[in-house]
Write a protein that binds this DNA or RNA. Structure first.
Lengths: 259, 259
DNA sequence: GATAACTATTTACAGTGTACGGGGTTGTTG
DNA sequence: CAACAACCCCGTACACTGTAAATAGTTATC
């Protein structure tokens, strides 16, 4: 099963597990493992070895039950992935910062960097997220806090939605590369430097005249900060995004028309 | 093998295949299948049924060779994925538009929408791309054209690199959801409407008082354009990104200082 | 004709998710 | 008390995956 994206499982079953709405069993033997335990070790495996190391067998074994006992607790792997995503989402904006409307730019920067740190800490969530958000308590909590970063600016609810979507879409796009860096290194056993070292001799035999602009710009970028500079690129992009939002927000703000 | 990301294969072998640098064999029987053929059917399978339907066995069978004969042409699945990515990259900015510096905003809009269309046409590339770009001719070609959209604006080569990175990161982040929509529908057999229909009753039993902002904004967004509106969100975000870049570019442009 | 270079194929192994059916444990009910 | 229902656990099995290893067949060169 390589199509590992969230939102695949039975939505109702997932929801019940996410919100702890499974009523306690009246009879039967006591369970050797709990859902929380299974999710926790699955997250630990994903953090340490990547998503592909998470298998139902492996998770079951890690909590001390047999492979098939996994399915007594969680209907299938799809539901496990949903639970994993919501579980780690609890780390986003964990201290619930108090935002002041006047500092919206600082607020959004905080939100963006917090989400970025989150993705970097759990790179496996990046290919997992789909448009059908996991409707769990932690996901709701982080979204609520993030939205509160732009409360009181005179934006409509719709504008708030789109504004946060823009920032988080950008963060997601910008972070996806940095997040994979370690992963690719582990898989290939090569650092980026080693990789370039192996690749460079071949590239010198390539005729770059069909790509004049790329050739010039790529050379300049490479000489300045090596193969790539995700942190600098993120900061640059975020500033531009916030500049764009500034024009939008200042134009909407009722009290302070800009010109 | 669930860790399907690019940049995993032997880099040199991949490069040789990408640039057609495998010297023609002098002896031996004629091959029943070519690399181009294998890549082509692999792309067709991925387009039609998603990345997880692409297996070496399936691809081999589709071109009429036995499962293991695949490996006489391509060293492994990692290299196949690299080749697939570069192959489809040929569709981006295919007609090589002529960009005029004065119209940089229109140029970048064209670049952004072209990349968006590309991702929507081949959603499987989204989880595949890593920071180790596939160094193939088509990838180079599209990057060169995209960069030429912001030539002649007085930007340094580094600024051009970061500017394009910003735009493409945003496009990637914004498109990831829309691209999965069809995919999730196929996997779950549910449209988004059916999904919401199943989920809504449960959500009404959830206490939303801990998420006041989310509850209000989510309700407003849902009532206005249903579950989500990726096209509108994309347009909104792109305008803001371009506004932010406008401030940056106008500030740098030598001839026209803004204030 | 021998040999080297090349393609194609068969078999096999260690994984994966999970359907199915049976066995053991617990609390409730007659 | 015995019977039963509810529940947890587990062994077996199936159809997949990528690919290592060994073998057989085909072609051009010496």
């Amino acid at each position: 099963m390589s199509d590992e994206i969230s939102g695949r499982g039975d939505p109702l079953k997932s929801l019940q597990l996410l919100w702890g709405r499974t009523e306690a069993p009246k009879r039967g033997p006591k369970a050797k493992a709990s859902v929380a335990e299974l999710v926790s070790v699955a997250v630990a495996i994903a953090d340490a070895e990547g998503l592909e190391a998470v298998s139902t067998r492996r998770v079951a074994e890690a909590v001390g039950i047999s492979p098939m006992s996994f399915y007594t607790h969680i209907p299938g792997k799809a539901e496990l992935l949903d639970l994993m995503m919501d579980a780690v989402s609890g780390e986003i904006l964990k201290d619930r910062p108090v935002f002041k409307p006047a500092d919206w730019r600082a607020n959004l920067t905080r939100v963006a960097t917090d989400y970025r740190d989150f993705y970097l800490a759990h790179p496996w969530v990046i290919p997992l997220a789909t448009h059908r958000t996991v409707l769990g308590p932690n996901t709701f909590r982080s979204a609520d806090i993030a939205l509160s970063a732009i409360e009181g600016l005179g934006l409509t609810d719709l504008d708030m939605d789109r504004t946060l979507t823009l920032v988080l879409d950008y963060v997601h796009g910008a972070v996806r590369n940095a997040a994979r860096e370690k992963r690719v290194k582990d898989l290939t056993g090569m650092t980026d430097e080693e990789w370039w070292y192996r690749v460079a001799p071949f590239l010198e035999t390539v005729d770059f005249t069909p790509y004049p602009v790329l050739s010039r710009v790529g050379k300049a970028a490479g000489e300045t900060y090596g193969a790539h500079d995700p942190k600098g690129a993120f900061a640059f992009g975020l500033e531009r995004v916030l500049d764009g939002l500034a024009a939008f927000i200042d134009g909407k703000a009722p009290g302070k028309p800009r010109r």
